[in-house]
Design a protein around this nucleic acid. Structure first.
Length: 691
DNA sequence: CTATTAGATGTTTTT
DNA sequence: CATCTAATAG
């Protein structure tokens, strides 16, 4: 199916449908960026200006100019972006494109660490902890040091981990973080530091690596200019290209400095107006200061928008013009026609839901594919009502982001068995397993772990442990299971799936005992078992789950009969970098966008504004922003509260939109929505060109 | 020490 | 609203 390798200038024959539809040739700015020979290059690319396309063409040009594909490193933000980028490079440059190295920062760091870690004191058989694991380990450190023994208020493990992670990713000193975000804990500074020291050495002893370590170790590996190893790693690549640069943090900037130090061939692409990941330590300073960090950088601005119609662009331009930004872009388009974006006032959530589904079905009838439409929202659970309605009306959909599959307790339980089998020193997983046993609580578990620490975590060490009488039977069964998992050198097809099967023989009964809603949980485990079957061994499976968790319900194999065409539901964050023919932004209410808790901090409010900007700029032809007026509020027992439209949709922004009002459903017909149209979509459709 | 239950609590975004 | 914490019974 892949085109044979062709020389670069043949692009007009190979370009993918949307590239061709947008524009046959690169525009001047894009061409400048693509042709840039060497040295640092900053591409400031507004929404929809062909950023990915430019990056892809630039890679193809480098290949055509003789750079070997494996000497190009293409860093993207999410695995979805990496996949799309690489397949487009492949389409453009043929099989060479497949050999280009690409992935997320964390994924690339993982690869390098497995390879070079042993030369730097990190065994190659480490286990990666996800955020939840890291928090659990933090809890063990906290308990070990005797903090939080029901004395005064002491920070929770989540808080501890957040402060630690923030410190590593931003390099802001711990006291400053506490003063800024947790003034109530400012006098615990010394405790924080002691816990972090213990946490760090605990990770080392247990052969564990957290997300932050992946970046930190990479930065340290390439940070010392004189170290031979740094030289070797930086020497792996001749060109480094980075997408979504506005969402990188200080650590990542340091990594890039190290990687590019010799050749300075670094290309970064980004849009300061779309910076939405500061909660992860990302700083817009990286893109703003790039010319200073990499002296002599060439700067190219992409300002022609190929995505949206002029009426949509008018509204989004106004929205973002309220923000202070440094790289002022003036986005324009040649797509002059089209309807104004809709501002939909719905009576309540149900009315909003009904409006969205009705309108989607209408567009679908007009010939828009479901997969060319998306509903975007601030937080994962905000689509719950919509999902129910879509299911009831048999509209296939796929949900991105906000997926908690791997965070579910029962899934983590099963994974803990595999992780202990893989890394017997994995303290977090041991602790989790032990607590599952009937008759074992915190004290017994700790005693067992002390035994393991003393006797070297060996496979037989656990079997030799003398459990208290009440837990003896469970202990014996677990020991046998672990023994069989470790000894089974079964490398045949589906071995991992059988391992999960063996674990479930032991675990399913515990699950039934401990949790409610047993059926869906068992179904999750069925899924996990199927996924496991696709991996060659435990190590690959566990690393992949930590670094590339399933991103959508479809990745998990649900809704298989509707794979071909399904509506996309996504958080605004997960929608970044994508575009759709029609976009619905729901819950545009003050308190959600911006989030109420962000209001105290001007910086955070600005980020919320950019988030709405990202969401709205995903639309090509149709955009509707909706908000419910009356919201049932369970916290205040005073039934309903009246919500206001997001402050970002101020008078000036609203002027470019057309108002639509959706009334509440009249109660007698509530039982059958299909016979009781609430709005006359046809009338709206007729009137929508009239401004 | 563990298991169970009642009560509080605090709700984002992702690698 | 479901998850985590604290308190108490077994």
């Amino acid at each position: 199916m892949t085109e044979a390798a062709r020389p670069y200038p043949a692009r007009e024959r190979v370009v993918h449908a949307r590239d061709a539809a947008a524009n046959d040739a690169l525009n001047d700015a894009q061409a400048t960026a693509v042709a840039h020979a060497a040295g640092p290059l900053l591409v400031v690319a507004g929404a929809g200006t062909g950023k990915t396309r430019t990056l892809v063409h630039r890679v193809a040009r480098l290949l055509a100019d003789g750079t070997r594909p494996e000497r190009i490193l293409l860093l993207t933000f999410t695995r979805r972006a990496a996949h799309e980028m690489l397949s487009r490079v492949e389409r453009l440059a043929g099989s060479d494109g497949r050999a280009v190295h690409g992935g997320t920062f964390h994924g690339t760091a993982h690869r390098l660490l497995r390879r070079f870690g042993p030369q730097a004191g990190v065994g190659s058989d480490f286990t990666i902890m996800d955020q939840g694991d890291a928090e659990d380990l933090m809890q063990l450190s906290r308990a070990h040091l005797g903090f939080g023994d029901k004395k005064k208020r002491f920070p929770k493990k989540e808080t501890l981990h957040h402060v630690y992670s923030r410190h590593v990713n931003t390099e802001i000193p711990v006291p400053a973080i506490l003063a800024d975000e947790y003034p109530q804990f400012a006098d615990h500074e010394e405790a924080f530091t002691r816990i972090f020291v213990d946490y760090t050495s605990r990770k080392q002893d247990r052969n564990l690596v957290d997300y932050d370590d992946l970046l930190l170790f990479w930065a340290m590996l390439v940070g010392d200019a004189d170290a031979p190893l740094a030289e070797k790693i930086a020497g792996l690549y001749d060109h480094v290209l980075v997408d979504e640069y506005q969402d990188t943090n200080v650590l990542q900037s340091r990594i890039l400095q190290g990687m590019a130090r010799r050749h300075r061939n670094i290309t970064v692409v980004g849009d300061d107006a779309q910076s939405i990941y500061s909660f992860r330590g990302a700083t817009v300073r990286n893109i703003l200061d790039f010319p200073r960090e990499f002296a002599g950088a060439t700067i190219v601005a992409l300002e022609e928008n190929y995505r949206s119609t002029q009426p949509i662009l008018d509204v989004t331009n106004t929205l973002i013009s309220r923000a202070e930004e440094r790289y002022t872009k003036n986005l324009h388009t040649r797509r002059l026609g089209g309807e104004k974006p809709w501002l939909v006032t719905a009576h309540d959530e149900q009315a909003q839901t009904r409006f969205v589904v009705d309108r989607i079905l209408e567009l679908h009838e007009e010939g828009v594919l479901l997969r060319e439409m998306a509903v975007l929202f601030r937080a994962g659970y905000m689509s719950a009502d919509l999902e129910i309605e879509l299911a009831a009306r048999r509209v296939p959909f796929e949900k991105w982001g906000g997926l908690k599959f791997l965070e579910a307790a029962h899934v983590k339980d099963v994974l803990a068995f595999l992780r202990v089998a893989e890394n017997p020193r994995d303290e977090v997983s041991w602790f989790r397993l032990l607590l599952l046993l009937p008759g074992v609580g915190e004290t017994t578990a700790r005693a067992a772990m002390d035994h393991l620490t003393a006797s070297g975590w060996g496979p037989s060490a656990f079997a030799a442990y003398e459990a208290p009488a009440r837990a003896r039977a469970a202990h014996r069964a677990l020991a046998q299971l672990l023994e069989s998992l470790r000894s089974a050198a079964d490398a045949t097809e589906g071995a991992l799936s059988r391992e999960v099967g063996a674990i479930r023989k032991f675990y399913d009964d515990i699950l039934r005992e401990r949790y409610d809603r047993v059926e869906p949980r068992l179904a999750d485990l069925d899924q996990l078992q199927i996924i496991a079957g696709g991996f060659p061994d435990r190590a690959a499976f566990l690393s992949a789950l930590a670094l590339e968790p399933p991103q959508s319900t479809q990745d998990l194999g649900f809704g298989s009969d509707s794979e071909d065409d399904a509506l996309v539901l996504s958080t605004a964050h997960s929608a970044k970098g994508k575009e759709w023919d029609a976009v619905f932004v729901i819950w545009a209410v003050d308190g959600w966008i911006p989030l109420a808790r962000a209001l105290g901090d001007a910086e955070q409010v600005e980020e919320e504004r950019r988030l709405l900007y990202v969401a709205m700029t995903r639309a090509r032809n149709h955009l509707a922003v909706s908000y419910p007026l009356n919201v049932y509020d369970s916290r205040r027992s005073a039934d309903y509260s009246i919500d206001q439209v997001s402050r970002f949709l101020d008078r000036g922004v609203r002027e470019g939109m057309q108002r639509v009002v959706v009334e509440a459903l009249k109660s007698p017909s509530e039982s059958d929505p299909s016979t009781a149209p609430v709005i006359d979509l046809r009338a709206l459709a007729r009137g929508r060109f009239g401004a």
